[in-house]
Each structure stands twice: as structure tokens, then as C-alpha cells.
């Protein structure tokens, strides 16, 4: 709370000095500090101690990917986190996730002693990889437990995966239609439903099973080629890449302009 007061004083000073850039920054800091203070107060009054601490980012992301079961964009993961769990995932906290996960995997697989392997997590959050060069796709995440074909992104894969994800979300809604998070999730599905041909009938009567059917119809038209491309790419990857690269991707070394001598 002292932190909040301190920030408020600095904000007043910045506004006095007409320093709008500083004021913006302080406002952001202040809102974070206030949220933190509120949570602490809530916990204190609820009396339930440390159990309410929000799970770490990687757990949240892994849980959501587990529901979606397909590679998803960071923005979609955040939207689902908000809609389904009421949790706000700050993008800044996601920035280091890929590196941290890879380091954690490396640490767990470094030792040759069998004991070292037991440190390994069952599942890692990994980047989706491009189907041609197996480089990490910026902004798309997957789970290490998924088969390689699913984690590779071919040109039509993004749309294929979005359609699968919409179907999964509709299934979630079907399973527990009266849950507190159902309305939020419905809104999310609704936004995407408009992008599927034939999902939303204009005469009114918006019905989630018709969304699911429309998604399936579109999938029927595009998923075969996509599956083949991904399968071929997975075969090549299995042959060429070591386990770490199969999970975290290869970053290409291309020669720079003529003057630098490329040594390989």
C-alpha cells in the first residue's frame, strides 16, 4: 500500500510538470500496484492464505493449450484465458516463456545419469514450427506432447487449426452449458463463427451446432492437403533433426552480405 501511495505522489508530480509520457507510465505501474494491493487485501479478508496465488504463466498456457489441442496464437491463448478462467495473461510475461522452457528442457536433459531425466517436466510449452525449415513461428505455441505433424505449420494449417479449436470450444460449451464462464466463451466463439461460411444464418436463431457443422464442412475442403503437407514435413523432420530441435525449432544460419566470409 505504501507503494501505491508513493506512485500516486509521483503521478501527481508528473501531471503538474505536464510530463504526459511519464504520467502514462506511472498510471500503468499504478494500476498494477493497485491490483496487487487489492488481491492482497482480498486474501487477507478471505483468510485462506497463499492458496489463491495465481498459477505461473506456463501452467496457465499449458492448461489452455491442453483444452484447445491445436497450435494457437498467443492472442487467442490470452483471449481464452480471459474468457474461460478470468485470468489476464500479460504479454510481457509471455515474452520469455519460449526461452525459459527451452532452458528448462536443456537442464533436464543435460545429465547422462538416469536420475537427471526425472527432473524433466511431462510437458513443455514449445513454439509451433514452420513446415519447410522447422523454424519457430513467432507468436504461435504448442505442447511438446503433441505429435510433430500437429506442431508443424503448413500454409493452410493456421486456418485448419482455428477451425478445430472452434469445434473444441463448442464442445466445451456443450459439456457445461451453464457454467459461469459459458457466456464469455460463447462470445468468443461467436466472433469466429462469422468467419465460417454458412455458420450464422441471417434469419436469426444462432445455434452452436450449426457452427460446428459449418466448421466441419470447411475443414473437409481444406484439411486433406494440409494433413499431407504436415505429414511429409514431419517425416523429413524426424530424419533430419535432433530431439531438441524437433521440439524448439531450428534457427537458420544464412550467410550475410558478400563482405562477411561465411564459415558455415
Amino acid at each position: 500500500m505504501a507503494e501505491v501511495t508513493r506512485l500516486q505522489q509521483r503521478l501527481a508530480a508528473a501531471l503538474d510538470a505536464d510530463d504526459l509520457g511519464e504520467a502514462d507510465r506511472l498510471l500503468a505501474e499504478l494500476s498494477v500496484a493497485e491490483r496487487h494491493r487489492n488481491r492482497l487485501l482480498q486474501r487477507a479478508s478471505a483468510g485462506s492464505g497463499a492458496f489463491d496465488a495465481a498459477p505461473p504463466i506456463r501452467e496457465q498456457v499449458a492448461a489452455i493449450l491442453g483444452i484447445l489441442s491445436r497450435p494457437a496464437s498467443v492472442s487467442l491463448i490470452r483471449d481464452v484465458a480471459t474468457a474461460r478462467f478470468g485470468e489476464t495473461i500479460q504479454p510481457s510475461r509471455l515474452a520469455s516463456l519460449r526461452r525459459d522452457e527451452q532452458r528448462s528442457w536443456q537442464a533436464a536433459h543435460r545429465g547422462t545419469a538416469p536420475g537427471a531425466r526425472s527432473l524433466a517436466r511431462p510437458v513443455y510449452v514449445v513454439p509451433a514450427l514452420t513446415f519447410d525449415r522447422f523454424a519457430p513461428v513467432r507468436g504461435m505455441l504448442a505442447l511438446s506432447s503433441w505429435p510433430l505433424e500437429i506442431r508443424l505449420i503448413a500454409p493452410a494449417s493456421a486456418r485448419v487449426d482455428v477451425l478445430y479449436i472452434i469445434m473444441r470450444l463448442v464442445d466445451e460449451l456443450d459439456r457445461t452449458p451453464d457454467s459461469p464462464w459459458a457466456p464469455n466463451l460463447r462470445r468468443l466463439v461467436w466472433r469466429f463463427a462469422h468467419t465460417i461460411a454458412g455458420a450464422v444464418e441471417i434469419r436469426g436463431g444462432f445455434d452452436y451446432s450449426s457452427v460446428r457443422e459449418a466448421a466441419e464442412r470447411e475443414l473437409q475442403q481444406i484439411s486433406d492437403t494440409d494433413t499431407t503437407e504436415r505429414a511429409e514435413a514431419a517425416e523429413r523432420a524426424h530424419a533430419k533433426l535432433d530431439p531438441e530441435t524437433q521440439l524448439f525449432g531450428a534457427t537458420m544460419r544464412l550467410a550475410n552480405r558478400p563482405s562477411s566470409e561465411a564459415t558455415g
Binding site: 525449415r133 523454424a135 513467432r138 534457427t251 537458420m252 544460419r253 552480405r257
Partner: peptide, 11 residues
């Protein structure tokens, strides 16, 4: 840049 982190601006 994510896929080819070594490239300089011209490349």
C-alpha cells in the same frame, strides 16, 4: 527475424 536471427539488415 525470428526464423533467421543472424541476418543483418541488408540480408
Amino acid at each position: 527475424r525470428t526464423q533467421f536471427p543472424d541476418l543483418d539488415r541488408d540480408a
